[in-house]
Amino acid sequence: MGKSNSKLKPEVVEELTRKTYFTEKEVQQWYKGFIKDCPSGQLDAAGFQKIYKQFFPFGDPTKFATFVFNVFDENKDGRIEFSEFIQALSVTSRGTLDEKLRWAFKLYDLDNDGYITRNEMLDIVDAIYQMVGNTVELPEEENTPEKRVDRIFAMMDKNADGKLTLQEFQEGSKADPSIVQALSLYDGLV
């Protein structure tokens, strides 16, 4: 993909415009910024974590950033290329609610087996709590990752089998306004 070129080839721009919710001009602008920050044309896990640390200076986002990195890194080569970056950004910032929920499901399904187990969710929720640090005051019933996961599973795990399917996750998330709101945070920002 033209590693350190400051412009993408027209056919690449066209393809990314088809695969995302961005215009050709927006794709070019994002590429310019991506190459400025990642001259090699790729972003590794350490660089990704560094970006998260800028956004969450009062907590430790390392663990959460690693989980997000793994979802962005579609081809699992340990690096995020621009096409992976822009497609994930498109879903998280401008995707439909169902697209965002499928993306979030992939984030929580750490072993990619098609289910979110209690332990997988606990890993992610714990990482989120570490990331936000003491900057967020949580209600008593959610002031630990374990309590939050218990509440989520009580609401979403309809067949009580200890794991969530994509359908259970989507339906449960849509029924909880706070989850829908959290997924909409990026709307309109890009």
Rank of each mutant, 00 (worst) to 15 (best):
S6M: 00
K7Q: 03
K7T: 07
P10T: 09
E11D: 13
V12M: 08
V12S: 10
V13F: 05
E14W: 12
T17I: 15
T20M: 04
T20C: 08
T20W: 00
T20G: 01
Y21L: 04
T23I: 13
E26H: 15
Y31W: 02
K32E: 15
F34L: 12
C38S: 10
P39A: 12
P39V: 13
Q42D: 02
L43R: 12
D44H: 06
D44V: 03
A45E: 06
A46T: 09
A46W: 09
G47K: 11
K50G: 03
K50V: 06
I51E: 02
Y52D: 04
P57C: 08
D60E: 05
P61A: 03
P61D: 01
T62V: 09
F69R: 08
F69H: 08
F69S: 12
F69T: 04
N70T: 01
F72R: 11
G78V: 12
I80W: 07
I80Q: 13
I80R: 13
I80A: 03
E81W: 01
E81V: 05
F82C: 15
F82G: 00
S83D: 01
F85G: 10
S90F: 04
S90N: 13
S90A: 11
T96W: 12
T96A: 09
L97A: 05
E99M: 01
L101F: 09
R102S: 12
F105P: 02
L107M: 06
L107D: 02
Y108F: 10
Y108K: 13
D109V: 04
L110K: 14
N112E: 03
D113F: 05
Y115P: 02
T117V: 13
E120W: 02
E120F: 01
M121P: 03
L122S: 03
I124Y: 01
I124N: 07
V125M: 06
V125R: 05
D126R: 14
D126A: 12
A127T: 06
A127G: 07
I128C: 13
Y129M: 02
G133P: 01
V136L: 06
E140R: 03
E146R: 13
E146D: 04
D150C: 10
I152G: 05
A154K: 11
A154W: 03
D157G: 11
D157L: 15
K158F: 08
N159S: 05
A160T: 04
A160K: 01
G162Q: 07
G162M: 03
G162P: 01
L166T: 12
L166N: 14
L166Y: 14
Q170C: 00
G172E: 12
D176H: 09
D176I: 15
D176N: 07
D176M: 00
P177N: 00
V180G: 12
Q181T: 09
L185I: 06
Y186K: 03
D187G: 13
D187T: 00
